[in-house]
């Protein structure tokens, strides 16, 4: 039972880590907490549904959906955030809320207020058994995909020129520009990566929830924000650590709290977050240079 709950925790933590990382990448470069990140997930979810309705095989549909998330993120930057470049943190934050609300209304009125069922392939609801120990295919995929995505991102940031430039930009954007690297390219890449991560997270999210609805982005972006803050805003390793920590605490509480206290689970989780921040105000793994604008 304990082993089972550990797998549950790692699986949920992995999804939170992907989400938090998506927020952190953009924040580290432009100082924007993109609250419309959840709507990128929703968009990917609808893209998956549409691709399946049009008869694409499942792997192709997933590919289409993830690319849609990535492209939508780049488009979002171009349309909504580029005109706001250099604006205050508050203005950027409000812009992202506006984009988020706008997209939610578009989904509700343009598609349907009702959640749409996404029938996952049968093998997704299967489970492996080892004696009396079973592990579902869904959680296994979650863990593998999260791990692969984290490794791939790490390689990109360490080994490629653009990746190196992005890490440098997170520390001092002006110096990177003086080196002759165009700001727009760095920022667009940051959004592209965050959209990719949102798309991947959306696939894992939808696989576990079997439906897409206009408001589905709200909870994940909130969790991602909490994870990113606990981990250290703007720090990529911090976002991953924060995501796993949040997932583990949530599963642990859900598994162990007596029924009478269970409704206070979220309150207890958030109290834990406050406790962490009291001890480490910059988060678990603080960013190299704290962003101020």
């Amino acid at each position: 039972m304990i082993a089972q709950q550990i797998i549950n925790a790692v699986s949920l933590g992995g999804v939170y880590a992907l989400l938090a990382l998506g927020l952190a990448i953009v924040f580290s470069i432009v100082g924007l907490i993109n609250f419309a990140h959840g709507e990128l997930m929703t968009l990917s979810g609808y893209a998956l549904l549409a691709a399946l309705v049009f008869g694409l095989p499942f792997p192709a549909a997933v590919l289409v959906a993830v690319s849609c998330g990535a492209l939508a993120a780049v488009a979002m930057e171009r349309v909504a955030f580029r005109p706001m470049r250099g604006a205050s943190v508050t203005s950027l934050l409000l812009t992202s809320f506006a984009v988020s609300s706008l997209l939610k209304v578009v989904f509700q009125n343009g598609i349907s207020a009702r959640p749409q069922a996404v029938a996952m392939p049968d093998w997704m609801t299967g489970a492996f058994s080892f004696g009396d120990f079973t592990i579902g295919v869904g959680p296994s995929i979650s863990i593998v995909v999260s791990a692969l995505a984290l490794i791939a991102l790490e390689l990109f940031l360490r080994r490629s020129v653009t990746g190196t430039a992005m890490r440098a930009a997170a520390e001092d954007f002006n110096v990177v520009r003086l080196m002759g690297i165009p700001a727009s390219r760095i920022i667009a890449t940051a959004f592209l990566l965050s959209g990719l991560l949102a798309g991947l997270a959306a696939m894992l999210w939808v696989a576990q929830r079997a439906s897409v609805d206009p408001l589905m982005g709200f909870t994940p972006v909130l969790k991602a924000f909490i994870a990113a803050v606990v981990g250290g805003l703007g720090s990529l390793p911090g976002a991953v650590a924060g995501g796993f920590l949040l997932g583990i605490i949530e599963v642990l509480l859900q598994a162990t709290l007596p029924a009478a206290v269970a409704p206070y689970r979220d309150a207890i989780v958030l109290s834990g977050v406050i406790a962490v921040l009291l001890v480490r105000p910059q988060g678990l793994i603080p960013a190299v240079r704290v962003q101020r604008s």
């Binding site: 039972m1 089972q4 709950q5 549950n8 699986s11 949920l12 999804v15 079973t134 959680p139 999210w205 576990q208 929830r209 709200f218 909870t219 994940p220 969790k223 997932g247 949530e250 599963v251 642990l252 859900q254 598994a255 029924a259 269970a262 409704p263 689970r265 979220d266």
Partner: peptide, 21 residues
Amino acid sequence: GRGTYTMGQPDFSAEITNIKN
């Protein structure tokens, strides 16, 4: 047995493990 969830909760795995056990 009895279990609870929060509306909009992403993950039911812990609850389900409790049911299985």
